[in-house]
């Protein structure tokens, strides 16, 4: 129900529970999950990357805990290969919320010899796991709240809202707790942790509809802008210092936007003219390509690559 004091809808609400729109329902569920983390976990953190899913999480955390402070810090695992617009946005949001932001970087893990790259330009996406697990150990986190959604990928369709990880951060699909009603079980022994996904039941369209409804600020690169790209294997690859054109490739300047903002080396934009949230919602409603199919350069190699990474401690 929209909190507007709309009398006709109030009347309906007294007759049945039909009154909650799908966004209100998803919001209420996510708030409930966040409050369960607060109630059950001693040292949780919320993973905030500056991406659209975690932007929704921050809004949901405000709705769950204000006028109180968040009962957890924000944590960003920085690959060092992020778009500067996103990092600036991240810092601005955390400051505006007056919440604590902890940043741990893959760069430091490389310097400490914890991560060894195959070559200097290798995608750091999968190496985030090492830095994340180190941060979990250092901060003694018993829960990490993340913005993953079940519709993103086949390997996520069976993911729990509270997903159990062993001492090595590993996810064992056979060792997950049954989740019934809304009775979540976040209990862990020392060294273990749970990953919690409050927006498990959201789709990409739900996320954009929610951002539009709540009028949330998002990094500028989510809107259509002109950018130098090359076409490679069906995707658009942005031309950056980290991702120069290969010999023979033609650099074009196109109107593009990002559907997901991650590591520069593995996140591709899509052609778009959407410059407002309403236009993004409309494009999302009619797109014919899945979010990962269009934008993730690393997942296409194998259908099961996400599953593999999760077993290794990936989000």
């Amino acid at each position: 129900m929209q909190p507007k004091g709309d009398d006709t809808r109030m009347a309906v609400a007294t007759q049945s529970t039909r009154a909650l729109s799908h966004l209100d329902w998803l919001e209420a569920e996510a708030i409930h999950v966040l409050r369960e983390v607060a109630g059950q976990c001693a040292t949780p953190a919320l993973l905030f990357s500056g991406g659209k899913d975690s932007i929704c999480l921050l809004r949901l955390a405000e709705k769950a805990f204000r006028p109180g402070r968040f009962p957890f810090p924000l944590l960003h695992i920085d690959t060092g290969h992020n778009y500067p617009e996103v990092i600036a946005f991240r810092d601005r949001r955390a400051a505006a919320l007056r919440e604590r932001l902890v940043v741990r970087s893959v760069e430091d893990s490389i310097r400490a010899g914890r991560v060894v790259l195959k070559h200097a330009g290798e995608s750091r996406n999968k190496h985030q796991s090492v830095t994340l697990l180190d941060a979990i150990a250092e901060l003694e986190l018993d829960a990490c709240i993340g913005g993953a959604r079940r519709d993103e990928e086949k390997a996520r369709a069976k993911e729990r809202v509270f997903s159990f990880r062993d001492e090595f951060g590993g996810w064992d699909p056979k060792n997950q707790r049954p989740e019934l009603w809304n009775l979540y079980n976040a209990r862990v022994h020392k060294g273990e942790n749970v990953r919690v996904f409050p927006i498990s039941n959201w789709t990409e369209l739900d996320v954009w509809q929610y951002i539009a409804r709540e009028r949330l600020e998002i990094p500028s690169i989510y809107f259509a802008h002109r950018r130098a790209v090359v076409r490679r294997g069906g995707a658009l690859v942005p031309v950056t210092e980290l991702t120069p054109p290969r010999p023979g490739e033609v650099v074009e300047e196109l109107s593009v936007r990002f559907r997901t903002v991650g590591d520069i080396t593995c996140t591709a934009p899509v052609e778009s003219t959407a410059t407002t949230l309403a236009e993004i919602v409309a494009e999302t409603a009619t797109t014919t390509i899945t979010e990962r199919g269009a934008t993730r350069l690393d997942d296409q190699t194998s259908d099961a690559s996400m599953e593999q990474r999760k077993k290794e401690g990936y989000f």
Partner: peptide
């Protein structure tokens, strides 16, 4: 309350 909005009533499944 739902965040910064005051509601006249709360219904089933609402946080």
């Amino acid at each position: 309350r739902l965040h910064d909005v005051s509601l006249a009533q709360a219904v089933s499944e609402q946080s």
